[in-house]
Design a protein around this nucleic acid. Structure first.
Length: 272
DNA sequence: AGTGCGACCCGAACGC
DNA sequence: TGCGTTCGGGTCGCAC
């Protein structure tokens, strides 16, 4: 499942492949994927070109001349660059055909991903983008900022780490890993997080995301990022998907328990 | 305002 | 073997 490191890998890979290629046409095979008007989406992209690809949290932001195409991959969204003669696969839902007879194809088994075409001036007003908190490694992500957000919160810290308005970009995998690295019990209430713990979350998240980005993300289950790039961070996971295996630090068995319906992997000994 | 939870999807895993 | 059922996961929107 693409999280911030996967999305960054996709962004960089696509930038090398599709910038400044003129779009001949766009086919939409599953209309619910497009949040904006479908006919306008097709019309505005025709004869247009992507001049840059940016990212905010897990959102990809394809820059056009007067618009931005926002794309969220959710769990299983992937982009592939293919020759136009290759047969359309079952789960390819949006196809951008370029004048050089290549396609950028959006593939999404679960159909959870979404795209939205907005005017450039609308970006700062866009709800999804505007509400994103600081990303791991950003200057504004300070202990005082986090303590302010965690104050009065009765929710488990694990749940708060998944809140994109607090920290932007952490998903289930990295939330589990950040809490292990910070030696914080995932059930601990937000309001009882200390300044030291907040500082540890900041340092762990920056370190883990930086490392995951260097390795191209994490390949879990069905997810391989676009164009054959495979994430290698999986080899460095300390707790995620390691239920009943031994903790790499203290050899205690890793537990998997639900917090707010989400699988939460942790070491009961290292994360008291 | 804060919190909880169903809906959106469908393939995989599981139960019988 | 084959069928039906359950589960997961990011985000939104609604209910309380």
């Amino acid at each position: 499942m693409p999280e911030i490191a996967e999305v960054e890998t996709v962004r960089k890979t696509l930038k090398k492949q599709i910038l400044n290629k003129k779009i001949k046409c766009v086919k939409i095979l599953y209309e619910k994927m497009i949040e904006s008007d479908v006919e306008e989406f097709k019309a505005l992209l025709k004869d247009n070109q992507f001049i840059d690809i940016k990212r905010r949290g897990k959102w990809l932001i394809f820059e056009l001349e007067n618009h931005y195409l926002l794309s969220h991959l959710r769990m299983e969204g992937k982009f592939f660059l293919k020759n136009i003669n290759e047969p359309i696969e079952k789960h390819e839902h949006v196809i951008f055909t370029f004048h050089d007879d290549t396609d950028l194809r959006y593939h999404d088994t679960r159909k959870f991903g979404r795209m939205n075409l907005i005017k450039k001036a609308e970006l700062s007003m866009n709800k999804a983008i505007q509400k994103q908190g600081y990303e791991p490694g950003e200057e504004g992500l300070t202990a005082d900022y986090l303590l302010g957000k965690f104050k009065n919160k009765n929710l488990a810290i694990k749940t708060l780490l998944l809140d994109q308005t607090i920290i932007s970009g952490l998903g289930n995998i990295y939330a589990n890993e950040v809490l292990f690295s910070s030696k914080i019990n995932p059930f601990k209430k937000g309001s009882s997080i200390t300044k030291q713990e907040a500082q540890s979350i900041i340092e762990s998240s920056a370190k883990i995301i930086k490392r995951a980005m260097e390795l191209g993300g994490t390949t879990i289950k069905s997810y391989t990022s676009s164009l054959g790039v495979t994430g290698r961070f999986q080899q460095e996971l300390m707790v995620h998907k390691r239920e009943k295996e031994e903790c790499k630090i203290c050899h205690t068995k890793i537990l998997n328990e639900k917090i707010n319906g989400r699988s939460t992997y942790y070491c009961p000994s290292c994360q008291k």
